[in-house]
Design a protein around this nucleic acid. Structure first.
Lengths: 340, 340
DNA sequence: CTGAAAGCGCTAACAA
DNA sequence: TTGTTAGCGCTTTCAG
């Protein structure tokens, strides 16, 4: 059609109104240097009077960027939508993008049609880059985006040799220092409740756990390890199994603080005092743990930095339209809150 | 610049490759009728071979729609991000949009710069319409969007004479029937924990509560009313206050089931049996209440229908670029689950 | 410092 | 049924 929404003046009309050329108006709108101050003011006047708003489609088409990035939430993410971790990450991404002028667009990809539609959207040039949350090993989206040469940054990696840019926390180191802390306080029978072991993040945390024990000359018995899935329920059940197998357990590393909360319930139900009898450390996905479990020592992940780093990496890729993959691994921090 | 992302063929190149005109390719891409089957196949072949993807900016510019709608979450919403209500609504909107070919874009508007950016984005023509969640009375966004003549649909209204299209549940009726139910089962001291009273939805539910009591010849004491903000924490605290003021309370209407859950905790902590001593009814924002609080009677809101209705209204506005406001008010249903 | 002009890739009206 | 053409509104050289 080419039907303009009525009441939407074009750059050209602004130019006419201000008595200047289109180029000049464009420069003013985009805050470019090299416009005489008086001219600039006249143009701004005209813009205000006409209520001019740039047409973003035209701007994109003329070659500039879309000025938007998408955060894709795939089906597995979606189940965790209600977790604080989620909103923390989104908040931090929003903050990180605040002064870049880019719109953050959250999109759901829960089914195959939705994946197709999103790909069309992204490849159609409506976003400059894509952020992906907690990708599972078998998620085809990262590779599809890479193939389409769209700047992409993952939160976490799918395997040791991830070939798409990513930001991750130092899960091995975090787990190691947590277990080291437990050892220092005299614990000797330290179990762990892992995340789903088909996720790289869970594998890493398990590795850190084993390394710390090995370093102390202790061998991690297979029966000290119980697999969970990050949920509270799984933490509860795993802890019950562990207590049954090893009543002497005096320390636990949990895959997340949600899992840790489940473990605590099971421990208390079994009559254990925490942290006196058994010390529990969880990976702290969000700074709220302080309030919900004030005495729980946690491995804190720097969520804000994660968001910032993801945005930085993405913008670098966008800027340079580069093909180089890059990654950032952020340090975790052991926050000691119990004294036992 | 006009720098094309390398490896992104244009419609024109497809046309050349297929040996047809650009118009024909356009028709094929948009699945329009009036193309000979053989020609269509040749073009599709070419599209596949070249890996052609339409440039959405160009398509938008040439007059067609953006094929995307935004769901805006403002700051107050954001606190409720983790609430199941939220993900239920988003899910239902996503479902409702599934076969319309429109992308659903969730956007955060937490600050003034973000509001400005979003407005620029929306007015810039990158979305065809805007959906707004739980708008507060003083939210300027709906009017700004209306002024920009952007199709907009609110979930809930800001006041009795909302002048922007909206979809709402029958909150007055829902509250009334809930309280009537409590009265029928012999309760006489019925308190309520409201939502934020600057939200019309909370006012309506409070009104329904009062009307039901009045109809039974009871007067709602002001001290029977405690304001909350839909969160569990606020429900807990409000309930504590209520118990202190009126130990004889035997019924409670909570603003949401999350609030109800908080109230339950406070009641149990105070040694009350539920529902034997005190019956609690919450507005059921999501069908999961059944599982989490199996014995809780609730006022159920038809979330799926809400999503469908919002999408329908929005698409109607988009289609007709109409100026007429429209609204839908959906019935609620009292789901009785406790026998006490 | 500013104006004019050439596209960006697509749709839609109009011819053929 | 198909090809051709004229924009959509903006950015960006390139002259002036």
């Amino acid at each position: 059609m080419g039907k303009r929404r009525p009441g939407t003046p074009t750059l050209e009309e602004v130019a006419a109104h201000a008595g200047v050329g289109r180029g000049t108006v464009s420069r003013v709108v985009n805050n470019e240097a090299g416009v005489k101050e008086s001219t600039r003011r006249v143009v701004q006047q005209a813009i205000a009077e006409l209520g001019y708003v740039p047409n973003l489609a035209a701007r994109s088409l003329a070659g500039r960027r879309a000025d938007a990035v998408a955060l894709v939430m795939t089906e597995p993410d979606w189940r965790m939508f209600a977790e604080p971790f989620f909103s923390e990450i989104v908040t931090s991404l929003g903050d990180a993008l605040t002064d870049t002028g880019m719109q953050l667009l959250l999109t759901l990809v829960r089914s195959d049609p939705e994946r197709r539609r999103f790909l069309e959207y992204a490849r159609g040039g409506r976003v400059d880059g894509v952020l992906l949350m907690s990708v599972h090993a078998d998620d085809p989206l990262p590779d599809m985006l890479a193939e389409a040469r769209l700047p992409t940054v993952l939160l976490g990696r799918r395997s040791a040799d991830e070939h798409v840019s990513y930001v991750d926390a130092d899960n091995v180191g975090g787990a190691r220092s947590a277990v080291a802390h437990l050892l220092e306080s005299g614990r000797r029978t330290i179990a762990t409740i892992t995340g789903p072991l088909d996720m790289y993040v869970a594998q890493c945390r398990l590795r850190g756990y084993r390394e710390a024990l090995a370093q102390a000359g202790l061998e991690a018995l297979p029966s000290w390890v119980a697999e969970g899935d990050f949920t509270e329920e799984s933490g509860r059940r795993a802890m019950e199994r562990l207590i049954e197998r090893h009543p002497e357990i005096d320390g636990v590393l949990a895959a997340s603080d949600t899992t840790a909360a489940g473990a605590l319930q099971a421990l208390r139900a079994a009559g254990r005092r925490v942290p006196e009898d058994v010390a529990v450390i969880g990976f702290d996905d969000f700074p709220l743990a302080e309030r919900t479990q004030p005495r729980l020592t946690t491995v804190r992940q720097p969520l804000e930095e994660i968001g910032r780093a993801m945005v930085r990496l993405l913008l670098e890729e966008v800027e340079e339209s580069s093909v180089a993959w890059r990654h950032v691994i952020l340090r975790t921090e052991l926050v000691v809150r119990d004294s036992a």
